[in-house]
């Protein structure tokens, strides 16, 4: 149990910093022995900042990730789906709450993190900058995006920072429900009417590429050997995770009758329409199982698009941040009131 960090932490990376060599060596030895670091332990400044940044980004992603699907809570088509979707989005908020607490204990107040998020100073996962225009998108998000999240988080659960690792394990338990419910929705649609199947294929065409991008840009030499890997803040490289993902989801999609396309997107994140009225996409011929390597092939997503979206120019960046900001502003008076009413008169309790 941590008493928390009360001293303000300078939250910038500092690669010139001179750390105590003995402590640094002990710290690395603990990590190399698969040991875990706890909040009260000594840790290199850049480890603390790196961990905090990654965790804050993760927490932000949970909070913003609640928005695209949240749009469908009021429109879910059955009582069961409505309840499940509310519970799912509620879980995302719960994950955000837990992850923010890991960051709070590393030295950054939650209030500051929420402010930074809604003024665009910090980022969240790129995948949430894509639109969810139909009910089938909810199904695809829960199947494809949550599937990607589980793979990623499983690898993060093998990391070195105890509080984050514990949170990851807990989150993954809940993600398993999201994923199952997503699978159930995709299976229902693909067993449904022609209209439902079409809806599912169109949503799949929107989400496949963002899910390939989910794991981040292709590995460079530095990401394979960088400090985040040696400190076990990350345990698997982007390309490794991406391949594992394709190996799992490409055959599953195929079995369901979904076709994997290489699609060209318009600025709204929808598959572009050619002048002849047809969608601007072709079947991904790379989707083949390679006996020799034991892996499925795939066409790399459009990495220019990835960097464009990350810089804030994706289909939904502005709308997501704006709603988060609006929520924070609308809630200001409520938080003020609650803080001010601490210790209600005895009659009230």
């Amino acid at each position: 149990m941590s008493a928390g960090v009360t001293t303000a932490v300078e939250l910038k990376m500092d690669w010139e910093i001179q750390e105590d060599p003995q402590r640094t060596a002990d710290f690395q030895a603990r990590i190399d022995a698969k040991g875990l670091i706890e909040v009260d332990d000594w840790m290199p400044h850049n480890y603390r900042v790196g961990m905090l940044r990654m965790c804050e980004h993760h927490a932000n992603s949970e909070i913003v990730g609640a928005l695209p699907e949240g749009e469908w809570i009021t429109r879910a088509p059955s009582l069961l789906r409505k309840l499940a979707l509310i519970a799912k989005v509620q879980d995302e908020v719960g994950h955000g709450q837990m992850l923010y607490h890991v960051c709070q204990d590393l030295g950054k107040p939650r209030d500051q993190m929420l402010r930074d998020l809604c003024t665009g100073k910090t980022k969240y996962h790129n995948v949430f900058n894509y639109p969810a225009p139909t009910w089938a998108d909810v199904a695809m998000i829960q199947w494809l995006v949550d599937g990607a999240a589980i793979l990623n988080q499983k690898s993060l659960a093998e990391g070195s920072y105890g509080p984050y690792v514990r949170t990851m394990k807990r989150i993954n338990m809940e993600e398993a429900f999201h994923f199952k419910s997503g699978e159930d929705m995709v299976l229902t649609l693909m067993s449904g009417t022609p209209r439902q199947k079409k809806m599912a294929q169109e949503a799949f065409d929107r989400w496949w590429a963002p899910c390939l991008m989910f794991f981040g840009p292709p590995d460079s030499d530095s990401t394979k050997t960088g400090p985040f890997m040696t400190w076990r803040i990350k345990t698997k490289t982007n390309d490794t995770l991406r391949q594992t993902y394709v190996d799992r989801f490409a055959p599953a999609a195929k079995a369901l009758g979904l076709i994997i396309h290489v699609a060209h997107k318009d600025k709204d994140g929808m598959v572009a329409i050619k002048p002849d009225g047809n969608p601007d996409m072709v079947v991904d011929e790379q989707i083949q199982f390679d006996e020799e390597s034991g892996h499925w092939g795939f066409t790399q997503p459009d990495w220019d698009e990835f960097f464009r979206v990350i810089k804030g120019n994706g289909p939904c960046n502005k709308q997501r941040v704006a709603l988060r900001r609006f929520s924070h502003e609308q809630g200001h008076w409520v938080r003020q009131a609650v803080m001010g009413s601490a210790g209600l008169p005895p009659s009230a309790n």
């Binding site: 909070i63 809570i73 309840l83 509310i86 908020v93 929520s327 409520v334």
Partner: peptide
Amino acid sequence: SDWTGVAPILEEDIAFSAIAQEEI
């Protein structure tokens, strides 16, 4: 339930969403 994800306090967001689920 429409407040899920946008309520004034994270902990309250979770609590209010739980109540919405129970009502439904």
